[in-house]
């Protein structure tokens, strides 16, 4: 598991590995310490192997937090399995997946 956060015009969160129960906890701890000044946050799943319900929960919480501040979340580079998970869970309808 590897988390990379970069700031700029857009805040980018890169998550490499399996976004499951354990790693979701670590990721949410990491994001709590992150000051988000950007209008847009990109969650880059290029190197994310798969996502379980814990990961989905984290993404929904993040989206909700950002929405409160009128900020947006985009999910980028989703692989087939993650896409299938987003689809079967209906997340495809509430997340902006690019």
């Amino acid at each position: 598991m590897e988390i990379n956060v970069s700031h700029g015009e857009v805040m980018t969160i890169e998550f490499a590995g399996r976004l499951d129960t354990v790693s979701s906890l670590e990721l949410s701890k990491r994001l709590e310490n992150e000051a988000i000044n950007e209008e847009l946050v990109v969650f880059d799943m290029k190197n994310t192997e798969y996502i379980s319900s814990a990961g989905l929960r984290l993404l929904l919480a993040l989206k909700k937090d950002l929405a409160k501040q009128n900020k947006k979340l985009e999910i980028h580079n989703v692989n087939n399995v993650c896409q299938e998970v987003f689809k079967v869970t209906g997340f495809i309808n509430i997340l902006t997946i690019k």
Binding site: A54, R57, L60, A61, K63, K64, T89, G90, N93, I94
Partner: peptide, 14 residues
Amino acid sequence: YIEEGTDNVEDIVP
């Protein structure tokens, strides 16, 4: 199943 527009995280109970 998460419906469109849902933003209630509590719906997603492990």
